[in-house]
Design a protein around this nucleic acid. Structure first.
Length: 481
RNA sequence: GGCGGGUUGGCGGAGAGGUUACGCAGCGGAUUGCAAAUCCGUGAAGAUCGGUUCGAUUCCGAUACCCGCCUCCA
């Protein structure tokens, strides 16, 4: 079995992955703040770490891997959404409105990520379910001299952790010199960050030794990873934008609260997503959600394949052209593998994935397998990457080709039972057989043009007629034919 | 301003100090009533300038350009 090698952000080198316990491989990935639909950028870490999850399950066994991805359901944007509904006259309590909003968003998130073929993590904890443990960890940090309470706030004392900045390659002094943010008066040091902050009456809050309040952002991940994975675990992942300050702060909290433990041993960060060469942003008008793409008819499997074409450590550019190419590739592969049983994943594919998730290299091996006609190997390997699975094949089955009945005489009673596309294929076949006798191909060409105009790909050969609906297929245009 | 990453053929995008990446597009051929699809074959690269080396696109340095983070966006 090829050893897995991963680029560890903490050491900036590619290292052999050696789990603390091969029978219990543990991975934590920072999940979404559930205030709205996931945008396309949110989907990248989901797909990246889904591939890693699948690889770890393949290597260590399905039951040997524990994958935790949290939901952040305490957040000012969530509060704002709930307050807006309350202001609009909703009689329910703020807590009920927040819960409704986060429940709804989590449902969307699950539906959208399922559509990308991402397996559900082993645990998906919500921050609000761990408030008590957060208060406990904050108290421990205060007790250890790593945090202090001021005016209802509790702040982490950054100077108390010597390695602060190590993960992201920053020095505390440089950051203070370049700081752009106004420093709150209750901070001992400009970089100290909030562990707990007070809530007034129209904000959600929990009772604590420091008054009614709510947790800061970073503490939840330290607490939930500790509760579900322990003081030391193997992999911690997330987007590169989280490296600082979020992950830096997580490390500081966790290592100060549990000084004898490693916390996370391998840090993986995926690079950001761009759209047509530019940062995705609302102001540039290129902002869209996963659901937007799915509704526009881009299958989740296509999104997934586009993502896997770029190594996770490099910025990925989403383009319409890539989506088209990916769809063509999947159409071809699904055609090759339809109805087959998957073989074991090809060693070359496992090897590529084991080399720091070289998904682009693995895809090249898939192409090679297709080229040499190893359809079962292609299928098994693709499924290891979450592609060509039964769950993701709906879009393909809906556009599966219609082949004309062998003999024109068979059209009679069976024609009515065939799909519109099947009937069109039968008709074209009949026209063609007639034309082969008369040598007048004009009627065939005319019908062919109509079908192409309806978004259908027309294939004619000695074997017969085959109609394949393309991405622009419009069944309504077949009606009049 | 501080820190980090990147620059590969028409496009996308990998690995490897010396040997074909791969996909799409292009070109040639097979096939086809014509096409499409499919199959076979094929040209094309390594931002710039230096250095190390027998040899670098691959290692080191500089320059240019691009991008990200520093603002509770993955």
């Amino acid at each position: 079995m090829a050893a897995i090698r991963l680029h560890n952000s903490a050491t900036r080198t590619k290292e052999d992955f050696v789990p603390l316990n091969p029978a219990r491989v543990r991975m934590y990935v920072c999940g979404p703040t559930v205030y709205d639909r996931a945008h396309l950028g949110n989907a990248r870490p989901v797909v990246v770490f889904d591939v890693l999850y699948r690889l770890l399950r393949h290597v260590y066994g399905v039951d040997a891997v524990t994958y935790v991805r949290n939901f952040t359901d305490v957040d000012d944007k969530i509060n704002a959404a709930a307050q807006a509904r309350k202001a609009a006259g909703d009689p329910r309590s703020l807590e009920a409105l927040i819960r409704e909003r986060t429940d709804e968003t989590i449902g969307w998130y699950h539906a959208d990520m399922d559509a990308l073929g991402a397996l559900r993590p082993t645990f998906e904890p919500r921050a609000t379910e761990f408030i008590g443990q957060m208060i406990g960890m904050i108290e421990a940090l205060i007790g250890g001299g790593h945090a202090y309470a001021r005016d209802g706030h509790v702040l982490f004392r950054v100077r108390s952790y010597a390695d602060y900045g190590k993960l992201s390659g920053r020095s505390v002094d440089d950051m203070i010199a370049g700081a752009r943010v106004d420093v709150a008066p209750f901070k001992e040091d400009p970089l100290d960050f909030v562990l707990w902050k007070p809530s007034d009456a129209d904000l959600p809050g929990w009772d604590s030794p420091w008054g009614r309040g709510r947790p800061g952002w970073h503490i939840e991940c330290s607490v939930m990873s500790h509760e579900l994975l322990g003081e030391s675990f193997d992999i911690h992942g997330g987007g590169l934008d989280l490296q600082f300050p979020h992950h830096e702060n997580e490390i500081a909290q966790s290592r100060c609260a549990h000084p004898k433990a490693d916390f996370a041993r391998y840090w993986l960060h995926n690079e950001m997503l761009q759209v047509e060469g530019r940062k995705m942003s609302k102001s540039l008008g290129n902002f869209f959600t996963v659901r937007d793409l799915l509704d526009r008819g881009v299958p989740g499997e296509v999104i997934r394949l586009v993502f896997l074409g770029t190594h996770y450590g490099k910025p990925m550019d989403w383009t319409a052209e890539k989506a088209q190419q990916a769809e063509a590739t999947l159409r071809k592969w699904r055609g090759l593998t339809e109805g087959l049983a998957p073989a074991a994943p090809l060693p070359a594919v496992v090897e590529a994935l084991s080399d720091d998730l070289n998904t682009a290299g693995a895809l090249a091996e898939l192409h090679a397998a297709a080229g040499r006609g190893d359809a079962a190997g292609l299928l098994g390997s693709a499924q290891l990457m979450g592609l060509l699975t039964a769950d993701l094949g709906g879009w393909y089955r809906r556009t599966v080709s219609a082949v004309a009945s062998e003999v024109s005489g068979a059209m009679g009673s069976t024609a009515a039972a065939r799909s519109p596309l099947g009937r069109a294929a039968d008709q074209l076949q009949a026209l063609r057989e007639e034309a082969m006798k008369t040598r007048n191909f004009a009627p065939v060409d005319a019908r062919k043009s109509q079908l192409i105009a309806a978004g259908v790909e027309v294939r004619m050969s000695k074997a017969g007629v085959e109609l394949v609906p393309g991405p622009d297929f419009d069944p309504a245009k077949l009606e009049g034919l």
